[in-house]
Design a protein around this nucleic acid. Sequence first.
DNA 1: GTGGTCTAGACCACT
DNA 2: GTGGTCTAGACCACT
Lengths: 132, 132, 132, 132
Amino acid sequence: MIIQLDMQSDVPIYTQLMNQIIEGIARGDLKLGEALPSVRGLASDIGVNLHTVNKAYNLLKQEGFIQIHRQKGVVIQPDAMPLVTPEYELKQHNQLRPIIAEAICRGMTKEQLLQVTEQIHKEIMHNEKGNA
Amino acid sequence: MIIQLDMQSDVPIYTQLMNQIIEGIARGDLKLGEALPSVRGLASDIGVNLHTVNKAYNLLKQEGFIQIHRQKGVVIQPDAMPLVTPEYELKQHNQLRPIIAEAICRGMTKEQLLQVTEQIHKEIMHNEKGNA
Amino acid sequence: MIIQLDMQSDVPIYTQLMNQIIEGIARGDLKLGEALPSVRGLASDIGVNLHTVNKAYNLLKQEGFIQIHRQKGVVIQPDAMPLVTPEYELKQHNQLRPIIAEAICRGMTKEQLLQVTEQIHKEIMHNEKGNA
Amino acid sequence: MIIQLDMQSDVPIYTQLMNQIIEGIARGDLKLGEALPSVRGLASDIGVNLHTVNKAYNLLKQEGFIQIHRQKGVVIQPDAMPLVTPEYELKQHNQLRPIIAEAICRGMTKEQLLQVTEQIHKEIMHNEKGNA
DNA sequence: GTGGTCTAGACCACT
DNA sequence: GTGGTCTAGACCACT
């Protein structure tokens, strides 16, 4: 999978990394149980410090997206993705709310908003290679 | 309008302030041309640093949501809200994408995602006092 | 509160730090809502790197023992300590089991084991200064 | 005796192995003088590295739980288990202390703590096949 | 070779 | 002044 980072962005690199990996899973580029590059391997590939990759991996592990084995390395969670918990619903709500509020201010209709959402959903699922 | 801040959150206070004001406009609590409290007034009202309110106001001005006059003070943009520019569309896209990707990972269907979006849209518009 | 670290121990420093703070709360030396030293302050006080303190603080925050405010600094969770969750019970069980098994091997009776437990409990609660 | 390893756990495998064998002795599944599988045999049985089994066996030997003979192979210490030495008491104390401190923080009473200890003791002794 | 821990040091965001 | 992020580099534990 190709990781694309924007070093100018004010989104922390480790967050961008997490997002890229999560999207990789969503679109099926990364299959459940599939191996990810080692911390040092990925770090040197994308030209960032090992600790930055480590932080991203550890947070993904905490949230249940990946497993880290001390010797075998890192794999996408083989059993099942984390589910929609109440905590997640709250987090998602808090993330979406200001985005939707701004859209309303700027005159987007509900229909336009839903269309954008659907469009992004399609973009992600489009290259989908089938993730169980 | 009542400002609700979460001092525990890791969302910067100035960002929360911006979000609250933008949502206030979206729901019609804040009308076009309406006066906002002075920097000092708001800061002491909600118990935050002067610089924090200042930063929020300045960013809102930059984005075109408010006007700041030396004499008249701060008012919601009287003429018209900023519109849906290509830059805004890009920003919105970049904000929504990782949220939608995570939702897909966790097994939310497109329909559930649209429902959540519609639900939040309704929440914001509900207390609407008419600025459509 | 005095922090005592054993630099020779194979228990990671950040874990020792966590343990010391948790025991400080247990014995009432650290009251709910009380301020803890800043990351850098504590690091220089006890002669370890800032990142080591940071890791301990962040894990304690994750588990709900402390709150971290970006500017105000670090405080013991003011509202209430984390409770006995099923996850915690499992963790505790897994920690205690091998300890108890070894004690049995070495010929300790159940009574002796309970006595040791009670003794340590008393040691911790002894200097207790009253924690709500 | 059945060895149960958790490859996901961050407890090192050699430690898990040691714990399982010690618990096997505690519960009487492994009798004094009883033969243990060879390093190679056990390693291939449970699918772990030779060195891992070796490390576990060597540490168990150091602590006096097993004997390793060039010819006869590995046996549970035939004469008597290691006893409660001052060093062991110190180690046990250091292991139990942070566990008990956290339990106190989370609001467990002394009685609940003793109950958990007793419960685990019973779990281990229950399948006991007599080596009291 | 893998991740884990720790250090030293820098710059940034926030208030 | 506070914590957050990132780098460069080292040694260790585990297999």
